[in-house]
Design a protein around this nucleic acid. Structure first.
Length: 938
RNA sequence: GCCUUGGUGGCGGAAUUGGUAGACGCGCUGGAUUCAAAAUCCAGUUCUUUCGGGAGUGUGGGUUCGAUUCCCACCCAAGGUACCA
């Protein structure tokens, strides 16, 4: 009777499901603990070995917390809207709902076979109408609120309208980024409805505006930067240009300051908080207004260095700014237009990455320096980004390196405004120990003094104003996609009208075709009945839109991050049909105690969800302002992608070792399952894998085609996904769980690699053998010897500490050492084996349950109290060597002796071998580290 | 480019946070057991060496009695970079 993991694992998985062992109640005497995983997108490639890493870690912690007496909420669900299902639908015509359901079923099977302790009765799916009803509802709430700076929270649009009706907009202090002329109460009331709506859109927390997108005319769709490679679409290789389109956006910028300051009290990784801080990008400076010669327009710039205002020698505008067209002089028009066209073909990332290539064009226009009245040439340059600050900079080449490089490149004069500093070679960017010179009233001031003074004077002359700028941009919320939440909006007289909660969910309509319409409208434009009957408050099957009772519905859908911004509250009360989460549930669970997920979400999901949380908190809909007290980033398990090399313009693929620097071959990804451990490609398999390879030619090296390797994110599109199924089949879930933990530190990224699996599997077999002798179950009542108890308690201590600090890899090592020692002692004592079983149960739950039952327990091991470390088993023997000498004038003292300096010196000098080394000399200096090492300097 | 993280034997990694670098596991080598193999057990395993020792934690500097750990500069890899999730 060996360790039959298959039988054991099937048995206990069935038992847990049958007994509903992990179903958790919203009432309990015990303290609550909510452990959340970032839910997966159910990809067609199935769950890969990277997913379980975090789930195993959270499951270990969840089981540990149950042993420690907590009422643990540990749910799971699916982030099931997304692009891959839609692209699959485009290729095959398969409805994304069907694909998604299939993928979810597969995921569930895979998750179940790993023995996770999820409470599946609380499962959520973002693509289910029961769920997205509430996502749509939150959208409506955002639409129905604005951000009031006086109270520093979101307030209802109705209250804003009331104020407009009473006092106009003069005293309103709210976040609004469109220019709205002052109006009185009477004027407001006289406005037409559409005019009022237009104004209100400037305030709403979700609003329509023109946003720049990557437009691909051939595909008739908008593309992510991700989908653009070298300026052409990844799919098809068509040209992509920048285009302005009406888009829904979320006014996350209103929450910039609170998102920033809220980080302070969160127990999240410092690096991740730093990423969010940098992303929000708070900077203090000033807006400065420059008049334009021969125009009544002004250029508004944001600068963090108003102290250098006298060093301005030119200005640079982002090429895509509308203003450029208005000021460009006829003799420069041609050059400017061709430059703009050029930059339109580059993504923002390319522009930022390419700093060595300095490009720009003079517009022919001049601005007027607000303080000196000097003529300042206005340039455009792609190092200035349209969506940061105002899209325009006042260039101070002596104080900013990019401005300096630009000036040098185009031979623009550089004025030095720093005292005793040379700017002949590079800009002087140091702010400390700097004295301003050649700057009129700023002469002799330090950076700090000059900042304040410059802003004062600019404000006096109405030429500027002190400002805080945030890099954080409003989040575009429209997607020209099918497989997402429909936006609950219809259009009346061209203005957006909100549905109400009673109208929801607004179900996603069926379409024949998942591509954009021939006219370039989003896929929902293909739906035959996508119109709203305003009177009867329902979707209208009759497509005749008459704009009196039947109105067109919004065709865009929501982005992937919509549902994931609030899903963690739905788990608390997943079945509630009346509210997004019931009061009782949310008051009991409050928030997430531990959130586990990857740092790749740092500036996406983890920021958006904090924004929604704060908004819902403002509305008194949620009890806390931050939803996750503690966050741990599990490192990504990376895949090892394989590449074949195609000779340019041919269908010939070359073995990697034949590549020479002269021919630049194109690397093309191939599926890793076609490659063996020695990087040799299965060419016949490749030919069958994708039609493009069926007729290809291959250049072998010694009959072998070697592939190139690269470590990168595991993803279906990179063909480098490894499934956990085979490992479960071969070694069992307990081995997989322990192995993934043993692989390395939880937080660190590491490439997947199966070498070493057998070591962990062996450990479990040895553990099993501790309970058996000659294949019969044997656990004795004999009193264990002291050594066995010592090793047990060392292990309890180490494992408890390691679980609490999420060092699961070293935990596994401790188990191995413990079991090896007990094996060599031939220890079968119940007093040792019982606590050890509980200790192991979070890591290897199946084998622990089995042995627990064999020990005579009828209840599951799940709730057994965790063993407690007892120090008294450890100290005894260690008192024998108070001082040890390692021959290099270095001493180690045991705990009991390391008290104070004098006692230590006395002990060391009294030690016989000390005298040998001293040879009559006396120590000059003692270096004593308590409980550690002593060095003596002669 | 910018932000974040990491770089230690043939491999994954450990090091009480400034104190004997390489725990534990894989792999490899030798041995025991076996007709044989698998499995299991025991021993060895950073490199180098004239067997005294010498070198060694991405590279080059620095601080320190002492640095994988702290500081400066650089190189390499991964994640993010706003429509992948």
């Amino acid at each position: 009777m060996g360790y039959d993991f298959k039988e054991i694992e099937n048995k206990w998985q069935a038992y847990w499901a049958d007994q509903q062992t992990f179903k958790v109640s919203n009432h309990s005497e015990k303290p609550k603990f909510y452990i959340l995983d970032m839910f997966p997108y159910p990809s067609g490639a199935g769950l890969h070995v990277g997913h379980p890493l975090g789930y195993i870690a959270s499951d270990i912690y969840a089981r540990f917390k149950r042993h420690k007496g907590f009422n643990v909420l540990h749910p799971q669900g699916y982030d099931s809207f997304g692009l891959p299902a839609e692209q699959y639908a485009i290729q095959t015509g398969q409805h994304p709902a069907k694909t998604t359901q299939d993928n979810i079923s597969r995921y569930r099977t895979q998750l179940d076979q790993m023995g996770f302790s999820f409470d599946w009765s609380r499962e959520v799916r973002t693509s289910s109408p029961d769920f997205y009803k509430w996502t749509q509802w939150i959208f409506l709430l955002l639409f129905d609120h604005y951000y009031c700076k006086d109270t520093d929270k979101a307030l209802s649009i109705t209250s804003l309208i009331n104020r407009f009706e009473k006092e106009g907009n003069v005293n309103i202090n709210a976040v609004c980024d469109v220019k709205i002329e002052p109006f009185s109460a009477a004027e407001w009331l006289a406005y037409e409805d559409s005019q009022q709506q237009e104004i209100l859109l400037g305030y709403r927390l979700t609003y329509l505006s023109d946003a720049e997108v990557n437009w691909c005319a051939e595909l008739g769709t908008v593309l992510a930067n991700d989908e653009i490679i070298n300026g052409v679409s990844e799919r098809g290789g068509y040209p992509v240009t920048k285009k302005k389109m009406k888009q829904w956006s979320m006014r996350i910028s209103a929450y910039s300051e609170r998102l920033l300051s809220g980080l302070e009290h969160l127990d999240w990784p410092e690096s991740l908080k730093e990423m969010q801080r940098n992303w929000i990008g708070k900077s203090i400076g000033a807006k400065v207004f420059f008049e334009i010669e021969g125009s009544d327009k002004k250029i508004e710039v944001f600068t963090t260095r108003p102290d250098t205002i006298f060093g301005v020698t030119f200005m640079t505008l982002a090429p895509e700014l509308d203003l450029v067209q208005e000021i460009v002089q006829p003799n420069q028009k041609k050059a400017v237009d061709s430059y703009i066209k050029e930059t339109q073909q580059r993504t923002q990332r390319e522009r930022m990455a390419d700093v060595k290539n300095i490009t720009g064009v003079f517009t022919g226009a001049y601005a007027v320096h607000p303080l000196t009245g000097d003529k300042i040439p206005i340039w455009i340059g792609d190092y200035v980004l349209a969506d940061y600050g105002t899209g325009a900079v006042m260039a101070v080449p002596c104080g900013d390196q990019r401005d300096y490089d630009f000036a040098k490149h185009f031979d623009i004069p550089i004025t030095n405004i720093f005292k005793d500093v040379s700017v002949a070679e590079e800009a002087h960017t140091d702010k400390v120990n700097t004295i301003i010179a050649h700057s009129d009233f700023l002469n002799g001031l330090s950076y700090k003094e000059a900042m304040v003074r410059a802003i004062d004077v600019l404000e006096e002359k109405a030429a500027g104003v002190g400002t805080i700028n945030y890099k954080l941009r409003d989040a575009v919320f429209s997607r020209q996609r099918y497989w997402g939440e429909p936006i609950p909006i219809y259009y009346k007289n061209g203005m957006p009208q909100a549905l109400t909660l009673e109208d929801l969910p607004l179900n996603l309509p069926d379409v024949e075709n998942y591509l954009p319409t021939p006219e370039g409208a989003p896929p929902l434009g293909n739906a035959v009945n996508w119109a709203w009957n305003e009177k009867e408050r329902r979707i209208e099957a009759n497509t005749a839109i008459d704009h009196t009772t039947i109105f067109p519905l919004e065709l865009n859908t929501m982005p992937g991050w919509a549902g994931s911004s609030w899903y963690f509250y739905r788990y608390m009360d997943a079945q509630n049909p009346d509210v997004f989460v019931g009061d009782e549930a949310k008051n009991y669970w409050q928030d997430v105690d531990l959130y586990l997920g990857g740092s790749e979400h740092a500036t996406g999901h983890l920021l958006y969800s904090r924004f929604w949380q704060k908004f819902l908190f403002d509305l008194d809909l949620l009890p806390v302002e931050e939803y996750a007290k503690k966050l741990i980033n599990q490192g990504m398990i990376l895949g090892t992608s394989a590449f074949v090399y195609r000779k340019p313009g041919t269908q010939t693929y070359v073995s990697k070792d034949l590549l020479s620097p002269e021919i630049t071959c194109e690397p093309i990804r191939v599926d890793v399952s076609l490659v063996n451990a020695s990087d040799e490609l299965d060419v016949e398999g490749l030919k069958k894998w994708q039609p493009q390879f069926a007729e290809a030619e291959f250049e072998y090296s010694k009959g072998i085609l070697k592939v190139g390797r690269e470590v990168e994110k595991m993803s279906k599109s990179k063909y480098n996904v490894v499934n956990p199924d085979e490992i479960c089949e071969q070694y069992g879930a307990d081995t997989l769980r322990m192995y993934e933990m043993f692989l390395g530190p939880l937080e660190q990224a590491k490439p997947w690699n199966t070498a070493g699996m057998s070591g962990v599997h062996n450990f479990l077999r040895k553990f099993w053998k501790l309970f058996h002798q000659e294949d019969t179950f044997l656990v004795t009542d004999t009193v264990p010897d002291k050594k066995a108890l010592k090793i047990l308690h060392e292990t309890i201590k180490k494992v408890t500490e390691d679980i609490e600090s999420f060092s699961f890899n070293t935990c596994v090592s401790s188990f191995m050492i413990c079991v090896n020692e007990l094996t060599s002692m031939d220890c079968h004592s119940l007093e040792v084996l019982k606590p050890l079983t509980i200790l192991l149960s979070p890591f290897a739950p199946h084998i622990s349950e089995e042995l627990w039952q064999k020990l005579g327990h009828t209840e599951s091991i799940v709730e057994a109290p965790f063993p407690v470390f007892d120090e008294s088993f450890l100290v005894e023997e260690e008192k024998n060597y108070p001082v040890s000498f390692n021959g290099k004038m270095r001493f180690t003292l045991s705990l009991s002796l390391a008290l104070d300096k004098e006692a230590i010196q006395e002990a060391v000098l009294g030690y016989p071998r000390t005298q040998e080394y001293l040879e009559g000399k006396s120590p000059k200096k003692w270096i004593i580290v308590p409980n550690k090492i002593i060095n003596i300097v002669f």
